[in-house]
Amino acid sequence: MNARLKQFLQRWGVFAALVVAWELATRAAASPFFPTPKTILGTIRDRWLSGPASQLLLSDEVFDDVLPSILRTLGGWALASVVGVALGVALGRSRVAMDYVGPLLAFARAIPPPTLVPVFLVLFKIGTPMQLATIIFGTLWPVVLNSVDGARAVDSVKVETARAFRLPRHQWLLGVVLPSALPKIFAGLRVSLSLALILMVISELVGATNGIGYQLLYAQRQFELPAMWAGIVLLGVLGYLFNTLLLAGERRALAWQPAGRG
């Protein structure tokens, strides 16, 4: 516990020192592009944390822009995860099926997701469906390919054990294949969650009337640099939170692992 406390202090101490250094540097430079952290924090407070107590101090802008962005990110990611894991586990247990679609999957993953944004734009018009489509298309492939990898690599002795005990199909899939594949699946989920955040921003930069990305673009056009920086910081915080939550979930789900990774 003491060691952990020390580590905690060390980490945040370094972080605080860096913020101070940043403050001093930006003050010295006085560049309009690089406002001081103090200014940025002030902007954050004014924009998002100035609401009434009934809204937990959150301003309307949080509900109009931040929350929709978060819901799009998580919604798209969750849909892609469910579909991706199911598809990946099924494909991973069939060598023949993978022979047919493997190259297509590898190709699909190699496509930079924003390139299909114009297509989604004409198909779904500006709005949430188009953003969800972009996020799902971009995040699906890492989940599928990692699930395939995981499902494929079920240990041969476990395969034979399951066969020797004549496990019924659902018990085999849910009780043996899925847990075996879980560590790989989580690796895929982590990659796709950070991709989901990126794609949320991209889709909002292109086709949205609200959201963090839209606000970012708006701030750029208005040359409101503190607002832009506030958006960047907010996205960083969100990315950090998402990743931390997923890691906590992963740790719980993989608690049985003697040597957890990451």
Binding site: Q10, V14, F33, I198, L205, Q220, M228, L235, V237
Partner: peptide, 26 residues
């Protein structure tokens, strides 16, 4: 590594695309 950890952990989650507007300005 311990020292750099905090920096890295807070820089990494910032999606690169969020920096696009800023990078265009700079």
């Amino acid at each position: 590594r311990h020292g750099a950890k905090a920096v890295v952990e807070f820089l990494r989650p910032i999606p690169s695309v969020a920096l696009i507007p800023l990078a265009i300005m700079v």
